[in-house]
Amino acid sequence: MNESRITLYLQLIGVFAPLSLLSFGGGQSIIADIHKQSVDVFHWVTQAQFVDLFAISRAAPGPGALFTTLIGWHVGGWMGALVASLSLFVPSSILAYAVARMWNRHGDKPWFSQIQRALIPLACGLILAGAYAVLSSSSGGISIWVIALVAAALFMKFDKINPLPTLFVAGVVQALVRAWL
């Protein structure tokens, strides 16, 4: 393993491990920062590659957090994928494990629900900011926004629909729009 590889792994850890503990509201909330670090700061991926990898992680099964796996894989192969994934999953998982053990002892205390109430609007703001960051950095034009908003309305209205057909139709629509306009 040469020095540049080690530097890369340390950079991946340096970016994703702190984000792990800041990803309130799920992986969505740190997308804006992942975008900034991996495209603008470290140039691990280009803007177009970022959007492609993001779409692949959504189209594939598993948690959306696997997007991080793809960034690591793109810049550092299988080992990069492993390092990036562990950096993102391990810190928050250790915290979750510790809290899971405490949960039954303190779940009914008032300070617990205070923290809960405080973090809900933060999660909400971060989730919406992440969506905004991805959409506004997309090269797909106005149709991207229309698709996102129509899909949002659809998913709000129908809780239980399988998202796959919607995602597929959205892909076809965007491909057709770009081919004709």
Binding site: A55, A131, S138, A148, A151, A153, T166, L167, A170, V177
Partner: peptide, 15 residues
């Protein structure tokens, strides 16, 4: 473009 459309709809889910 197809993948970008998928990503946009997934962002709709996020919204």
């Amino acid at each position: 473009n197809f993948l970008e459309g998928i990503a946009a709809a997934a962002m709709g889910m996020t919204i």
